[in-house]
C-alpha cells in the first residue's frame, strides 16, 4: 500500500543557508491522526508548507497521494495555517460561500451545524470577532471539507478549553478511516489521546515516529512528559 504522504530526502534552505528541513524522510499512512511535535524553529511549519505546495523544496520530493504538490493535491488537502487569511470586511457566511465555491468537497451543512454548536452568528463580520472566534471559524471551514488529508497548524492554541474539547470531538467524529490528519501543536497533553502516532522533529529532521501507546508502554510516560525529556533545554 502506498503512503498518503511521502517525503524523501526533503530539504529546504532559506536565504541564510541554514537548512530548516534537512534530508527528511517521512511516511504517513491513510487513516492516521498524527501529531507533528517539535520545539520552536524545528522545521514543523516549513515541512507543512512544503506538503501544501506553499514552499518549494530545495532538494528531495514530497508526494501526496502519489502527486507532487499542485492542483491535484490541493483538491484533497485541507490546510489550517497558523495565521488566518480570512478577509476582515466579509461576514462568516460569505466565507462559507467562498469555500463552497473554491472546494468541491466542502460540506456547507456541516459548517453551519458547527457554527451553531459554537454560537457563532453567520451574519457577523470577521473583523467584529475575537481572535479565538476567528480561529474557530477558520477551523470550521477547514474541517468541513471531505479531504483526504487535513493539516492543522496550531488548531487549538487560541481557543478556550471548552471549545478545545468540542474541536477535538469534531476531529474525531468527522474522522473517516481513509483520511489522515496531521496536527502540529505545542499543547501536547490536550491532543495526545486522539493521536495514533507522534512524529518528533528536531533541527529539520525526524528523530522519532512512534505510536502513542507504544511510547507510554516503553517509556512509562505520557507523550507530553516524554517530549519534555527528549527536548529538555
Amino acid at each position: 500500500m502506498s503512503a498518503l504522504v511521502e517525503c524523501v530526502g526533503l530539504t529546504k534552505c532559506y536565504l541564510n543557508g541554514v537548512p530548516a528541513v534537512a534530508n527528511l524522510n517521512l511516511k504517513i499512512e491513510k487513516g492516521h491522526i498524527v501529531g507533528l511535535l517539535g520545539p520552536n524553529g524545528s522545521g514543523k511549519t516549513t515541512l507543512i508548507k512544503m506538503i501544501n505546495g506553499l514552499l518549494r523544496p530545495t532538494e528531495g520530493v514530497v508526494l501526496v497521494n502519489g502527486f507532487e504538490p499542485g492542483v491535484e493535491t490541493k483538491k484533497c488537502v485541507s490546510y489550517l495555517p497558523e495565521r488566518t487569511y480570512l478577509e476582515a470586511q466579509r461576514t462568516v457566511g460569505d466565507m462559507l460561500d467562498f469555500f463552497a465555491d473554491f472546494y468541491e468537497d466542502f460540506q456547507k451543512d456541516r459548517a453551519l451545524d458547527m457554527l451553531t454548536a459554537l454560537n457563532i452568528n453567520p451574519k457577523a463580520r470577521m473583523k467584529t470577532l475575537s481572535k479565538g472566534t476567528k480561529e474557530k471559524v477558520q477551523l470550521i471551514l477547514v474541517m468541513s471539507r471531505d479531504a483526504d488529508l487535513f493539516i492543522l497548524d496550531e488548531p487549538i492554541a487560541g481557543v478556550d478549553p471548552a471549545a478545545r474539547d468540542y474541536i477535538i470531538r469534531t476531529i474525531i467524529s468527522n474522522y473517516n478511516p481513509e483520511a489522515s490528519v496531521i496536527i502540529c501543536t505545542h499543547l501536547i497533553s490536550d491532543i495526545e489521546n486522539i493521536l495514533d502516532d507522534v512524529v518528533f522533529i528536531k533541527q529539520g529532521q525526524i528523530v522519532l515516529q512512534m505510536q502513542v501507546d507504544d511510547i507510554r508502554e516503553k517509556h512509562g510516560k505520557t507523550v507530553d512528559a516524554y517530549f519534555r525529556e527528549v527536548f529538555a533545554c
Binding site: D165, I168, R169, I172, S173, P177, N193, D196
Partner: peptide, 11 residues
C-alpha cells in the same frame, strides 16, 4: 464511544 471519550477511534 471514541467521540465520547475524546480518544482516537483506532485506540
Amino acid at each position: 464511544l471514541a467521540a465520547e471519550a475524546g480518544v482516537n477511534p483506532n485506540t
